[in-house]
């Protein structure tokens, strides 16, 4: 589904990603871990098409298409979803209005009829249950005055509404208490199918107790320096990142 080859990206001339290689197949969950500043969030942003990053080398193919050629909205319409680390507030625009615009633009791209108000509302009610969303939030301005937990739940709710093929969760666990973490993870797990894939970007192993990954990758200095299964995450939890850093840095000096 997603193939990343030798991806290099920089911001304002500073290289952040220095040759990422990753293969994600349908039905898989990949966790990207790594110390602060290793490029985890950059990878998520680059895949979603944030424009301040400059791609200096490499290629990314998504469902056979050159992802890097697509505008951010076309990537979304093709099925790439990014759950933001810091969801953005849009005053005066209700979640309902926002989502209806989004869902119908995606449908239009795919050559489907727009959903009428009744069908849309039915879909919303169904998906709200997934993340135990309070209906009141939907008529309020998007993310404005939402608590940290509500914002993250709203991200997963949007994900459920848009039914993406590739979901990228960018530190969705940050700022969540244990109950919210459980609710958010439940939502993600219920949305999992054999046809879609998830990339979980996280700092802590805690989230992976709830969303169990098929593969764990460690990102350091803009490269994937170690890959393994979920046991790798446990090892990292126990030993920290220093041993990996040492391994990489000593190899580099040799």
């Amino acid at each position: 589904m997603l193939t990343i080859k030798n991806l290099h990206a920089s911001i304002e001339g500073t290289p952040i990603l220095r040759g990422i290689n990753l293969e994600v197949k349908a039905g898989e969950i990949h966790a990207i871990m790594g110390p602060n500043g290793s490029g985890k969030s950059t990878l998520a942003s680059v895949l979603a098409g944030r424009e301040e990053y400059e791609i200096t080398a490499g290629e990314v193919s998504f469902k056979g298409k050159d992802l890097l050629e697509l505008s951010p909205e076309d990537r979304a319409r093709e099925g790439v979803f990014l759950a933001f680390q810091y969801p953005v507030e849009i005053p005066g625009v209700s979640s309902t209005n926002f989502l209806r615009t989004a869902v119908n633009q995606v449908r239009e791209y795919r050559g489907e009829e727009p959903l009428d108000a009744v069908k849309f509302l039915t879909l919303m009610k169904e998906k709200m249950k997934l993340v135990e969303m309070d209906q009141k939030l939907l008529s309020r301005s998007l993310n404005e005055g939402f608590s940290g937990g509500e914002k993250k739940r709203n991200e997963i709710f949007q994900m459920a509404m848009l039914a993406p093929t590739l979901s990228i969760l960018d530190e969705t666990d940050s700022g969540l208490d244990i109950d919210a973490l459980r609710i958010v993870s439940n939502g993600v797990n219920q949305l999992k199918s054999k046809d879609n894939a998830t990339i979980v970007v996280t700092h802590y192993q805690r989230l992976l107790d709830y969303i169990v990954p098929d593969f764990v990758h460690v990102l350091y200095k803009g490269q994937i320096v170690k890959s393994g299964t979920k046991e790798l995450a446990l090892e990292l939890e126990e030993k920290g990142y220093d041993w990996i850093k040492d391994e990489v840095d000593s190899n580099a000096t040799v």
């Binding site: 979603a48 424009e51 951010p72 909205e73 933001f84 005066g92 926002f98 989502l99 633009q105 995606v106």
Partner: peptide, 27 residues
């Protein structure tokens, strides 16, 4: 903000529609 526009784009909303949405929300 670029952030607001990118957020809308990432949900599949074209930039022009995103601006209309944001401005109408504001007004």
């Amino acid at each position: 903000g670029e952030d607001q526009l990118f957020y809308c784009n990432q949900r599949g909303i074209a930039t022009e529609d995103a601006v209309a949405l944001i401005v109408n929300g504001y007004a």
